[in-house]
Structures are given as C-alpha cells and as structure tokens.
Design a protein around this nucleic acid. Structure first.
Lengths: 351, 351
DNA sequence: CTGAAAGCGCTTACAG
DNA sequence: CTGAAAGCGCTTACAG
C-alpha cells in the first residue's frame, strides 16, 4: 500500500503539483487556498496516507502539546498510592480539555535533574518540590512554566497546597481528645533529593502534630511520641508495623501521614490479630477512596487530590498562555473525616 | 542572570570560540574533542545556563523518547479504575528502565483517531483495540510500533491478553457450582468507537459465561441471565444496582466483568441494607488490590495488570529496536481467587 | 491564491 | 581534533 519510507509534505507537494506552503495550508488553514488546490492536495494525501509529522510540527511551532508530571519516586511506587493517581487524574482532565497529552516523567537514570533536562514538555507539575532543590534551578534555567503541588511555597515557585500544619493539628487533636497519650507518628520517608531540606509537607505536618500536643501540655519527644518513617505505599505501612510491634511501651494510636500507609498497617495489624480500634487506634491523611472501603473505615483528613491536580494544571496553562496570574499560591480546603478507626483510649490497651 | 531569549548551541559556539559541531560533541561524545575545547565549551555553557533543547534534539534524532498509552475513555474515568492504573504502572516501570517517559493520550476533541494523528511518541500501547477499528489504520499509516492490551489478536497487531473466555467460564462455573441459577451479568459498557465490533474482551467473556451455563444445561437468555451494562467505574457499579433492584425475579448472583464495578455495586447494595453474600452473591474480574480490602472480600479472577503493561512495553521496545520478535501474541496467566462474596444459593434469597 | 525561502535547534557524515 | 554544511519536516512572513 504505502512505501516503507515515510511520506512527507514534500511528497504531497510533488504529487499534487502544489507547493509545501499550500500543503501546509490545506491542513492548517484550508481557507487560505482555493478549493481546487485543497482537493488536489487532500487527494494526494489520501492516496499516500500522509499524516503531518507531529514532531516536526511541534518543533516548528516551538511547543510540545504536552504537560509533564515530575515523579519524585519510581513510577511504580508513585502510582501505587491512589492519592497520586487522583492528582494525575486532575491534571489529566485539564490537559484533555485543552487538547494536551500528559507525560509522566520518572527520574532519568536515578536523577530527577537529568529527567528535567531531557523533558520534552511545555510545562511541568512537580510533587513536593522545594525552591532550594537543584532540580528547581534546572527547571528555571530551561524557562519552562512550572507549578509545585505539596511543595513549599516560595516567591518564584507557584504552588498548590492545603494548610498541612492546621490539618495535621486538627487530626492530632481528635486523637488527643479521644484520650490517647502514647502515640506513634508514621511519617513519610523522604527521597534523597529531599534530604536535609526543611519546609516539606512532612515538616509542616510534624509541626501541626506538635502544636496539638502542646495544647495538651505534651511535647514531641520519645516520652510520648515515637516517629516511624515509612515508604508511601501499602507495603511501607505493612513493614512499619514491625517497628511498632517492637516498641516496649506500645502506643495506643497510630497517626499516619498517608492513608495508603495507614491501610497497609491496618491489613498487617489485622493479620496479626490486633483489633482496630479496640487494641490500637489508627488515623490517616488524604482520604483516598479506599479509606471508606476498608473495615474499620479510616478516620482521616480529606484533601482533594483531583482538585489539586486540576488547579495546578489550570495554573500551568495560564502561565503558558502568558496570562496575568491572579494568585500563584493556591490553598485548597481540607477537612477531618471521622470514621471508625479512631477509638477512645479507655478501650485501647493491648495485652 | 540569563537573558530572556533562550540560549542555543549557537550562543555557546560563539562564546566559547568553537563550532556548533564541537559544542554538540562536548555534550554527547566528549571523547571526540580535546580537553581544552571541552572545558571552554562547558564553561560557556555553565555561564549562560545552556541546556540542549530536547525538542530539537529529538527532532534531529527522529525520536521522541516517550511511549504513549492510548486511553479509550476520558482520562478521568480511565484512571479511576485501579486495573488501568496497574497496567500503566507496568508500562511505566519499563519506560523508566529504558530512560523513556510515558505519555497518557486521551481522545483529542472527542476523537481517538485525532489523538493518534497528533501523538508525539515512539510507540503506542492501546487498550482494547481491534484490528478493524479506524484508529488502527491510522496507527499503521503513521508506521509507529504498537501493541494492544485486551484487544483482539490479529495478524498485524501484536497483543497481550489473558484467556478471557476460559477465565470467564471458570468464574461462572464457581457461581453455578454454588447453586445459582438466576444470574445477572454486569458487562462493560463499550465506548462508541467499539460499537458493533466483535471479538472484544466483553464478547470473549460473554462466550465464557455462556460456555459454563451450557455445561449446566442453561442458556444465555432472559430466562436465567439478565445483562446489565455498566461504565467501568465505581459509580458505574453503583448505578447498575438500580437496574438490578427493578428486576422482578431478582437474580441471586451478580457476575461482574470488572472488580471496580463489583465494588461499586457492593457499596450500593450494602447501603440499601442488602447482605452479601447472604442476600445476593457477587463476583468480579481483575483482582485489583481493593478486592481484598473490601468486606466481604471479593471472589474474582486474578489477572496481572502490571504484568500485562510490562509485557506490552517490552514488546514495544523490541519493535522500536527492530529486534526479531519471537512472539507477538502473548498470553498471560489468570486464576480464580475464591474469597467471601460468593455464597451458596441455599442462603441466597431476598425478601 | 500561490510559492520560494528562511527558520525552529539540534546531529552528523564528510573533508581538512 | 575541528568546522562548514546538509538535513530532520514542518510553518509562515513576505513577495508576487
């Protein structure tokens, strides 16, 4: 049917007897050429199965027609967290609306920076980026619009966040109100690129937990709080249980910075015959769909992942269009969802 | 720091005093130029914050360094099905391994064909594609390697499948073994592009269900089987319950072609006070993580979404490299997972 | 309405 | 080791 060499605009020009200019117009601004020319060109295109090469077109137009999401982790573990998937959904739906595709960008040979160097995208949405990171410098060097979700807001870095500190304080209050005084905080294991930086979402939440503890005259130290870092997956939660079980004075409440971790812990605890919330209480963060599905259902803080993604994407498109941006630091609402996994302390004691 | 115009290879050549060729070598084949040249060039690049433009580089190299997944639905509903997410994970992990990104391609102004025309990718993984679809023709016209997951295998279309017909037969057998004789099959609502085509996964599964019924001397008609099509989301499952409830002779078992649909139905049924499996049995398809989390846990057929994605991606990369392909129709194993949602019929009767 | 030509920013075969 | 030049396949300002 068609030859093995790809057919280009030049072929269509030759066959149809018109110029490359006209061929281009036939596809992009049909109104600018005569009906006769258009028909001859389209006929030739049809016969040869010509489709304008998107890469050449994009290059010529100096655009990519795709937005990138920079994944801080292996793509595999990132997508295993339904919250991330929600964010991607939100970004994706806006991309779709504007006729763009969505590119998932994992680290390139272990390096997020290399990934950014090579990223063929019109805009970049990052997860948990902080202004001091070297990656940010590279993004800026490449002069491509970017927005960070769950990063630390800073002057030249547009951001989408919830008030993590308040949200964390509020959920910890619920835990304290229920009478718990020995608590394990399951925090987010940070990837290397984040190490040693401050103002991460993890830090904000820690501060919030601490605020609530302070309200009860407690302080954030080994006497009442144990910190167990976990990878942000169900497996991360499962293995955190091991560390929890080894604690001599076992906490009566597990406060997780992520629902998927909380659910992993719940599964593992239940496998060990430990009752929730009778033996130990459990609260999460995110309110992923699964948190309502699980038994007991999870008390958690609801934050709108899809909304975060959507807002970030809309912001990126505004930046791409060069619109005046009314607000570059967007705060999205959260709320506490009380369900079954948090019990009162009087019932919380493990043999 | 840097001017507003983007800095190109030409600038670095000018500033460093070397040619564009040498600059290019400095970045891509440092061994081919002198240390002196390399240092001068890198210094200039450093000063101006030069990063080679990926778009130009890709265009010159005639590649994109990204693989596309063609989404048959709105990106939003596609990602709401954890099974699809699993497939994406699998594809993504292989892309990552080869230093590629992964592009999610939703329909472009409602058209999957237009999306393919504009897709800037080196290879395309499609979901549920059939050889007769117009989209396939366009992919072939563009001469880009492609593989279909859950499509119908055909000569010139490499594919990854499970034996859907057998899998469906096996799960239906379990249902029949449990004594059920009035059954509702919740099938997949097909998107328009699929309408009127045969050999879809839906068809294969229907045949499998039918095979099992035949073994029991039953036939696939209104006397014992009701077919309710549902969108492949939790909401799809929820609304399918409405149709189920209206049936006068209510089925004792719900056989779903997708776990996410089954879970949606389960939630809705439970909200209505209907007990599973006491009042009605429920089985699914896919074995997504959530199916084990839910109460009662879901009896279903396990199929490895991640593995499907991985295999499809590996195949695409083989095609891109021009390797000899040993096998273009890959069959991946499935198995029946018996859990709690399927009960024996003697207990299945609703007031 | 139509077309020749420059341009997008790289890579690379070739010659020196 | 180094560089001039062609080429990747489009778009588009400009002239006719």
């Amino acid at each position: 049917m068609s030859s093995s060499r790809r057919v280009t605009i030049k072929d269509i020009a030759r066959i149809s007897g018109y110029s490359k200019t006209s061929v281009s117009f036939a596809f992009n601004e049909p109104g600018r050429i005569s009906v006769k020319a258009r028909e001859a060109i389209m006929k030739a295109a049809e016969e040869l199965g010509y489709i304008p090469d998107p890469l050449a077109r994009n290059f010529s137009l100096q655009r990519h027609h795709t937005i990138g999401i920079l994944l801080p982790h292996l793509i595999n573990s990132a997508l295993r967290n339904p919250f991330i998937t929600q964010v991607i959904q939100g970004v994706g739906s806006v991309c779709q609306k504007y006729g763009y595709t969505l590119t998932l960008i994992p680290p390139l040979n272990e390096s997020v920076s290399d990934a950014v160097r090579a990223a063929a995208v019109d805009g970049l949405i990052t997860l948990g980026m902080e202004a001091e990171m070297k990656v940010v410098q590279i993004i800026q060097q490449r002069k491509i619009p970017y927005v960070t979700i769950d990063g630390s807001p800073s002057a030249d870095m547009p951001s989408i966040n919830i008030k993590d500190r308040f949200a964390a304080r509020d959920i910890m209050r619920k835990v304290l109100e229920a009478g718990h005084r020995r608590i394990a905080v399951i925090s987010l294991m940070e990837s290397e690129e984040f190490m040693g930086l401050h103002d991460s979402v993890t830090d904000f939440r820690m501060s919030g937990y601490s605020d609530a503890l302070a309200e009860y005259g407690l302080c954030f130290d080994a006497s009442c709080v144990t910190i167990i870092p976990a990878a942000c997956t169900m497996e991360g939660g499962r293995s955190a249980v091991g560390q929890f079980m080894q604690l001599e004075e076992r906490p009566t409440a597990l406060v997780c910075m992520s629902d998927i971790i909380a659910i992993g812990m719940q599964q593992e605890l239940q496998a060990l015959g430990i009752q929730i919330p009778a033996d130990v209480s459990l609260v999460g963060f995110d309110n992923i769909i699964e948190s309502a599905l699980v038994t007991p259902s999870l008390t958690t803080v609801d934050q709108p992942g899809g909304e975060k993604g959507r807002q970030a994407a809309e912001l990126i498109f505004q930046l791409i269009r060069g619109d005046d941006i009314p607000q570059t630091h967007i705060i999205v609402p959260y709320r506490i969802i009380e369900r079954e996994s948090l019990g009162s302390v009087h019932t919380a004691a493990i043999g």
